[in-house]
């Protein structure tokens, strides 16, 4: 009882536990999960990442001017939606060339605001895919 009183009293003079964000930056470990990054030249277009992704945040869609890559026989282009991604790394594990063609960074996505209509373009891609 006495102890809890003294602890409560001591707490008055302690520094706050919270961080003064955004003035102070949040500590970020190199292993934290963030955006998936992709290298067009290294990709072999096996589409394993597209199949593995649980929410379907990676799409390969045929375009008119496909990236120049001899493995890209069907003229596909990689699309990634950071707002659908759940950062589970399932795509990187499925990739035959992890860390070269596809890897996970610890970067945050930009904040998606409703007025920016961030998913409109994505819905068009999904419609083409179907």
């Amino acid at each position: 009882m006495k102890e809890s009183f003294s602890k409560a009293f001591q707490n008055l003079f302690k520094k706050p536990q919270t961080i003064d964000y955004p003035v102070t930056e949040i500590k970020k470990d190199k292993d934290y999960r963030g955006l998936i990054e992709y290298c067009e030249e290294e990709c072999i277009y096996c589409l394993k990442c597209e199949k593995a992704c649980p929410p379907g945040a990676i799409l390969f869609v045929g375009v008119e001017n496909p990236p120049k890559n001899e493995k890209n026989k069907k003229g596909l282009k990689y699309h990634y939606n950071p707002y659908l991604c759940i950062y589970c790394q399932e795509c990187v594990r499925a990739c035959p060339k992890p860390n070269e063609a596809l890897w996970q960074s610890n970067k945050k996505p930009t904040i998606g605001v409703a007025s920016d209509r961030v998913n409109d373009e994505w819905f068009e891609l999904e419609a083409i895919k179907k």
Binding site: D29, D31, Y32, R33, I86, Y87, C88, Q89
Partner: peptide, 10 residues
């Protein structure tokens, strides 16, 4: 630190 995510560890 271990999983990379704070709430949804996956």
């Amino acid at each position: 630190l271990i999983t990379g995510n704070r709430v949804q560890f996956d």
